[in-house]
Write a protein that binds this DNA or RNA. Sequence first.
DNA 1: CATGCGTGGCG
DNA 2: TCGCCAAGCAT
Length: 393
Amino acid sequence: MTNCMKNKDLLKEKGIIMWSDDKIEAFQKTLLDWYDANKRDLPWRRTSNPYYIWISEIMLQQTQVDTVIPYYERFIDTLPEISDLAAASEDTLLKLWEGLGYYSRVRNMKVAAGQIMADHNGIFPEDYDAIKSLKGIGPYTAGAVSSIAFNRPHPAVDGNVMRVLSRLFEIELDIGKASSRKVFEEMIHLLIDRERPGDFNQALMDLGATICTPKNYKPETSPVKDFNASYLNETWARYPIKQGKKKVREENYVVLAVPTDEGEYLFQKRASEGVLSGMWTFLMIPTEVINEDGWKSFGGSADSLTDTQAELLVDYIKNEYGLIIACDNNLKGTYTHIFSHLKWHMSIYEAVVIGETETGHSLHAIHPDDFPDTAFPVPTQKVWEMVNTITLF
DNA sequence: CATGCGTGGCG
DNA sequence: TCGCCAAGCAT
């Protein structure tokens, strides 16, 4: 059985009728003509260097184009060769990635650069399976790099492509489910322009980003509206099918800004797994530590710590970090940081160290002069802004 | 396969 | 204001 027949069987099973060869050809021409006239001028579209295209694709994961551009420029300036990435320190990489989020992406890139140095003589591999086996590269990114950098006809199915296809074909599949991606990939296998696969994939993504958008969608403005079943049938508002997200978990912390005699501040490095892994924060103490009844310091009457709460805090810091502190009971400010799946409610206080019960604890003192060379996640930056403002006045 | 993983923009 | 959204991947 040919691959083509397998494709059609899978689509048939999902109730998807593929277009005729003539219609596919007409669609390719219409889409690529639109792309040639309207494609966005983006930095990574001025290069054919697979390393640079790879960087752009990783940065663009779940991240908007306007956010990525300055990060991309700085990254290729700082690490112009794959060997530079392989040799870079984690501190250097995290500083380059600071504020971009999903920090495991850049850690994975360093691992992948090592794979390329060790297994491919430092040359970015052209083979799809070799690309896909690199750390941090999944089916989307492997398809994007192989089609854009090497002109290979592999699908690159992201959220844009699933939305565009859902509307073109009135697809009933939930685009949030992992199993759906395979079906869209089979459709692209049949639809993709074999002469210009990279441009075809990028054209679909540009269409999704600029015309076939999640909100404010106006199907009559699309260059491929004549191919759009949901437009012709006036069902477009239904697509794509997507289930709602679950509510985010909320956590409450006492955050302690602790200056030293030398004008440094104490920071803790987060665990190597989990949220903001390996990054620096001020001391963060779950509020449960100072009140087992779920006391919250924000939005209520308990703006300042009671003496009992301060004592519990001092005991905790002594046991956990081996430090004796004196805590200012007055609340310095609050800040809520919203992650994709989590909320941190932070109540900020100041404390000073007045003794130590042991040395070699897990905290590090960093001077504000060195902040520009240290990678801080946004919650740490926001807390620092508040602490710095209060300290100045 | 569902969940965890950042951040900023938008209506 | 706040929930949703943006060129996904590892586990």
